[in-house]
């Protein structure tokens, strides 16, 4: 089948990426952002500790009960006629606000990371391109040579990607997809900056190494 041998046409690719972004929001209540997930995945102990303390805050019913009990203890009974306001983190209609949705637990982040690699394995297997090699193909080889020199470039590039996405507060998914599609000014600015820089540097590299 040609969809497994050739790269997908733009429409199908767009549909798949939008399905991941919208599906993640609908399924978890939180917007997809890989760099943030990666940062939490890399700090397992902290992520697990935060999840424990967050659970206590996001159980809004328990919070409302505790507030009511404290109010009764302070002012006595007799306030049954007064309806309780909606607890924090919930709109008047009782709908949870996105920020009040707990972050994915560490194990879910680990499953996500493992599944992205599994997706790559599945794609390479089905398209018959699975092979193990230590280079990134002829174009990367022409620009940065192969072997240790190219590995240093990959390491350096990776550090810039990790550092830059944390500094900007998002990457291609968080700013590029989840942010730009909601017209967030910070995301539009970040996307212009990272895409523009990648274009300029690539044009420069292509010219120098031509």
């Amino acid at each position: 089948m040609s969809l497994l041998e050739e790269y997908w046409p733009a429409g199908l690719g767009a549909l798949a990426l939008a399905a991941v972004s919208l599906g993640t929001y609908l399924g978890t209540g939180r917007l997809l952002g890989v760099s943030g997930m990666l940062a939490r995945l890399l700090r397992p102990r902290e992520t697990m500790r935060l999840a424990r303390s967050e659970r206590g805050l996001t159980d809004t019913e328990a919070l409302a009960r505790a507030l009511e009990a404290a109010t009764r203890a302070e002012f006595g009974g007799g306030c049954d006629a007064v309806p309780l306001p909606p607890p924090p983190g919930v709109t008047a209609a009782g709908r949870p606000l996105p920020a009040s949705i707990p972050r994915p637990p560490w194990a879910a982040l680990a499953v996500f990371a493992a599944c992205t690699a599994l997706g790559g394995l599945l794609s390479a297997t089905l398209s018959g391109t699975l092979s193990f090699h230590w280079d990134l193909g002829p174009v990367h080889g022409r620009l940065f040579s192969e072997g240790p020199t190219s590995w240093v470039i990959l390491l350096l590039g990776g550090v810039l990607v990790g550092f830059g996405t944390q500094m900007a507060g998002g990457c291609t998914s968080g700013h590029g997809l989840s942010g730009c599609s909601r017209l967030q000014p910070a995301s539009l600015l970040a996307t212009v900056c990272f895409f523009g820089t990648a274009v300029l540097l690539s044009l420069l590299l292509a010219r120098i190494m031509a």
């Binding site: 690699a117 790559g120 810039l160 830059g164 996405t165 990457c171 700013h175 895409f195 523009g196």
Partner: peptide, 27 residues
């Protein structure tokens, strides 16, 4: 500045944060 650093790194290694994981799966 974060966007600029990320863009420079992206041009060098061809990876936004999720890409190296997928690439490892591809071999």
């Amino acid at each position: 500045p974060g966007g600029i650093l990320f863009g420079a790194g992206w041009a060098l290694c061809g990876a936004c944060p999720v890409v190296p994981l997928v690439q490892l799966g591809e071999g």
